[in-house]
């Protein structure tokens, strides 16, 4: 998805204003001359300048070549590839939501198997590789590296 520079510039200008408005609410620190708001002000100023320049560039390009405000990427017109994006992002959301509840092992196994299948692996291969990967990560991270991966449903199975 490609935007004309003027659109990007407009977004930046809006962002700059939002930063200034939010930052102006930051309090002063008793006994200090400089507070939390000054650095965001500087960044907003930078966004403002860059935004204005991009708007100028974008308008010039548009006059010269008639570039559209927004040009959709090729993948956005292909349902298969759009779904691919959905699957990747969805998998992360599901993991975030489900792992603390169900535990790492079931969540990782199901997600891996489904994603592999979706991306074109056979069922048998997907299930086997997913199981092996899940086991390997659990052992290396939980047991060796001592990362506290959530146990969830598996807790009473692993530690009866």
């Amino acid at each position: 998805m490609r935007f004309n520079n003027a659109v990007l510039g407009g977004l930046l200008l809006a962002g700059a204003i939002a930063i200034v408005v939010t930052a102006s609410g930051f309090p002063n620190v008793p006994g200090q001359q400089f507070g939390p708001r000054h650095f965001p002000y500087l960044i907003a100023a930078g966004f403002g300048v860059c935004g204005a320049l991009l708007v100028a560039q974008g308008l010039a390009t548009r006059r010269a070549t008639g570039e559209a405000w927004v040009r959709l990427g090729d993948w956005m017109t292909s349902p298969r590839h759009l779904l691919n994006v959905g699957v990747v992002l969805g998998a992360m959301l599901v993991y975030w939501w489900a792992a603390p509840v169900l535990g790492f092992i079931p969540t990782a196994f199901i997600l891996l198997a489904l994603m592999m299948r979706w991306l074109g692996a056979g069922w048998l291969g997907a299930v086997c590789v997913a199981a092996a990967t899940t086991a390997m990560i659990h052992i290396s991270f939980y047991s060796w590296l001592r990362v506290s991966l959530p146990l969830g449903l598996m807790r009473d199975v692993l530690y009866p």
């Binding site: 990782a108 997600l111 994603m115 592999m116 990362v147």
Partner: peptide
Amino acid sequence: RAYLMPIILLFCMVGSFAVNNDP
């Protein structure tokens, strides 16, 4: 790639989580 991409994604999620144990 059908196998590799999901595995990389899982490693990334577990790795990011592990830094501060934070979902």
